[in-house]
Amino acid sequence: MTLQREKRDYSWGMVVDVDKCTGCQACVLACQAENNVPLNLQDRFERARVMSWIRVERYWEGEFPDVKARFIPIMCQHCENAPCEPVCPVFATYHNNEGLNVQVYNRCVGTRYCANGCPYIVRFFNYWEPVWPEAFRNHLNPDVTVRSRGIMEKCSFCIQRIRRGVRNAEREDRKVVDGEIQTACTQACPTNALVFGNFNDPDSQVAQMKDDDRHYTLLPHLETDPNVIYLAQVDTDRSGGESHG
């Protein structure tokens, strides 16, 4: 249960231009540094337990010499109709008034049901207590909870930055202006493949980009109504529907 998009003060969302993503991984580490995402030690990779609130998937098409690599950044899609929410027995994950799918760490009991419910596989479970050597604690972000073992976590659209931005705007009693709030990943993304903003502000960059001819959403058949809109990759070698590698 949440406010309809149009009834909200803000409806946060992201537009991802796949055509621009180079796979550079800047967003990945920017997110990790901003959100105190635990260090992915070697065994996390070997046991397929890597935590990466945003990940860059690389797909292959064709074979040498006509092989192509495609990159796509995937983070929580902040679905309006989120399959992860109804299954959580304790409302540790719910939808807030700004279109965000929020994760309440201290309420989570770690059933991992939400993670099964999420079609985009963007929820990450703390199988082990995260380790932060004392020295590294100096760079942890004080605005973000340092999670403990046994709970679920995921992309929060950098809610702490949103709060700061909204707070600052409210102090000068005005609305947040476009570009004023940037998530860590959009701030980092060198090619500007990631753009964050308020869908309810018609002048915002995201509002204008989201109806581009190339716009699509991931797994539309599931009707999750994501707040992350993708713009398709362009390939001059593709001739209409005929060839797709």
């Binding site: 046991r47 397929a48 337990r49 890597v50 770690g110 991992r112 993670a115 099964n116 596989i121 990450f124 479970f125 703390n126 199988y127 082990w128 207590e129 073992r149 046994g150």
Partner: peptide, 14 residues
């Protein structure tokens, strides 16, 4: 110790 002692992973959560 935590569920790390199991063979569970992402996305095989159960």
């Amino acid at each position: 110790k935590g569920l790390g002692v199991t063979g569970l992973s992402r996305p095989v959560y159960w």
